[in-house]
Structure formats: C-alpha cells, structure tokens
C-alpha cells in the first residue's frame, strides 16, 4: 500500500501544529484530516462538493476539504473547527452566538458552518442578512432551516438579531 509512485510526503500546518505524513496521491484532504490525523470535527455530508460540512480554512480561505487532495495541501496552513476554542478554553464569540441562537441541532453541518462564517466575518465584519444567506449557500443544514444560523452570524457581528429577521408573536 505504500507504493512510492502513489505515495507522497506532505507537510501541512493545521491549527498551528506541523504535520509531516506520507499520503496516497488520491487521498482527499478531508480523509487525511479525519482518518490520518483523527481530527474528527471536520465532517463529510456529500460526495459532490455541495454540502460544505467539510469546510476548513486553507491559508485563511474557506475551502471544501473534500474537493482538494491531501497532496495539494502540501506547504499550506489549515484551520479546522478544533482551532476555534482549543481544549479547555471557553467558546469563541462565534461559537457562543451559535449556542445562544440555537443554531445547532444535530451538529453535523456545524463545523463547516462555523468555518464559513468565520471567514465571512473576517472579510466583512458587518454583513447584511442577504450577504450572510448567500455566503452560507454552499453549506447545507438539514435541521435548522438556516434561520437561527443567520441569526447567530448576526449576533457574532454585533448586530441586532431581531431586526429584519424575526418577530415572535404571542397570542
């Protein structure tokens, strides 16, 4: 299985830690992250690049790690969901916003959503609702209907969550 013609040595930085491993040429980055490095936070929800559960940051840019080969990550710097609040630390503001707004149900899309939202807020600290929805278009959630995820990103951006999104009525 370790045929030198199909095996390559890659060196990647993930969440500030350096990893050097031999990988199969055809190995997807997401399988490298999950199966080889046992960073289980990054998930897989489809095999066509639609769902975004595997979204990680590659040199700061959100990428679907099922759409990249592990060898393509050679020399690059990655951030996964595990970087958002390292062991023992409290939730980041973005994570806390997801908790406050009930933007998590089953948790399968959550890591990808968080990484996509983090990248959005870094390039646009005050996005409007339409920008948030369009940005999350490549991240499928089957539980929340997206409403609370949009609210969470708004909260993380310091916006008034009730404005323009949701009024609750009580009879």
């Amino acid at each position: 299985m370790n045929d030198p013609e199909t095996t390559h040595l890659v060196e990647v930085q993930i969440n500030g830690e350096r990893y050097e491993r031999a990988v199969q040429a055809r190995e997807l980055l997401v399988h490298f992250i999950r199966d080889t490095l046992a960073l289980k936070g990054t998930h897989i929800g489809c095999d066509t690049g639609n769902c975004g559960a595997c979204t990680v940051l590659v040199d700061g840019q959100p990428m679907k790690s099922c759409m990249m080969l592990a060898v393509q990550a050679d020399g690059l710097s990655l951030e996964t969901v595990e970087s958002l609040s390292p062991a023992g630390e409290e939730l980041s503001d973005l994570q806390k916003a997801f908790n406050d707004q009930h933007a998590v149900q089953c948790g399968w899309c959550t890591p990808g959503m968080l990484m996509q939202a983090k990248a959005l807020l870094e390039r646009d600290p005050d996005p409007d609702v339409e920008t948030i929805r369009r940005t999350l278009k490549g991240n499928i959630c089957r539980c929340t209907g997206y409403v609370n995820i949009v609210r969470a990103v708004q909260q993380a951006a310091g916006q008034d969550v009730s404005a323009g999104i949701q009024q609750e009525a009580r009879a």
């Binding site: 499928i140 997206y146 949701q166």
Partner: peptide, 14 residues
C-alpha cells in the same frame, strides 16, 4: 437539498 437562499426567513408564532 434546500440551501440558505431557498428557505425564507421564517416568522413563527405560537
């Protein structure tokens, strides 16, 4: 599968 732009911002009441 429905995306964030396919699902409108739902108003709820109860």
């Amino acid at each position: 599968a429905a995306t964030a732009v396919d699902v409108p911002l739902l108003l709820t009441g109860e």
